[in-house]
């Protein structure tokens, strides 16, 4: 769902850039204060992994493909929506500048959708669902699904405001395709969490762990 330069007028792109920069600033503050050198290897590996995953377009049927976003995974593993903003912003900068995936004037909108909306939706829906159900996999799956679908719907609203997509047709198509991609996003997110928890439990946010482990420790 990387919006290219052609799809949004420059002045609207500038507005999304300004909003995105506020969150980027906050994410830099998060990185400065919360990221210690012990966690840095995991954060850097996550950025590399998300770059690679986003280059993998999976078939969705209906003549469409889609790739994972990864915002929920990062926010859940590192325990902050700003972790997603931080990593997704850097990945989007590399994609946009080096590979032309996503525009330059629209990079703010892409950061806003996948980093900010994806990160916040992923993190807080995981937190809420985990408190309600107590199940990490169920909560992470639904959170990742939502963190794929809702940014896509945000993109369709932005493209409607830009005059590129009609509202209803855009929402239906974007919603349908990303509801399907979101299922894969959910499965991969849960699998990646299990993998990371098993190899480096010390680097993972405590919110991911089963409640009883937290109580014992």
């Amino acid at each position: 769902m990387h919006i290219p330069d052609a799809f949004i007028p420059i002045w609207q792109g500038a507005i999304y850039w300004i909003i995105a920069l506020v969150f980027v600033y906050l994410s830099l503050r998060w990185a400065k204060n919360e990221l210690n050198e012990e966690k840095l290897p995991l954060v850097a590996v996550l950025a590399a992994g998300i770059f690679a995953l986003q280059s993998f377009n999976l078939p969705v049927s209906m003549g469409t493909s889609g790739h994972l976003v990864g915002g929920a995974l990062v926010a859940i593993i590192l325990g902050s929506p700003f972790a997603a903003v931080f990593i997704l912003t850097l990945v989007l900068i590399v994609q946009g500048i080096m590979f032309g995936d996503g525009g330059i004037t629209t990079m703010g909108a892409n950061i806003l959708n996948m980093g900010v909306v994806g990160g916040f939706v992923g993190f807080y829906s995981f937190k809420g669902l985990k408190a309600a159900t107590g199940s990490m996999p169920v909560s992470a799956f639904i959170a990742a699904w939502l963190a794929c679908l809702i940014p896509a719907l945000c993109a369709s609203v932005e493209l409607w405001l830009a005059g590129t997509f009609p509202l209803q047709a855009g929402m239906i198509a974007m919603g349908l395709y990303h509801a399907i991609i979101g299922v894969v996003e959910g499965v991969i997110t849960v699998a990646a969490i299990y993998l990371i928890v098993s190899v480096r439990p010390d680097m993972v946010d405590k919110g991911v762990m089963p409640a009883k482990v937290g109580a014992v420790a």
Partner: peptide, 28 residues
């Protein structure tokens, strides 16, 4: 290990990734 997994995913993507347009392009 993390970089190897990431690079493997990316290399497999070069051969296996779907050539269909992504969700946004399809919508367009």
């Amino acid at each position: 290990g993390g970089l190897i997994i990431a690079i493997l995913v990316g290399v497999v993507a070069v051969f296996m990734a779907s050539s269909d347009p992504d969700g946004l392009e399809s919508t367009a």
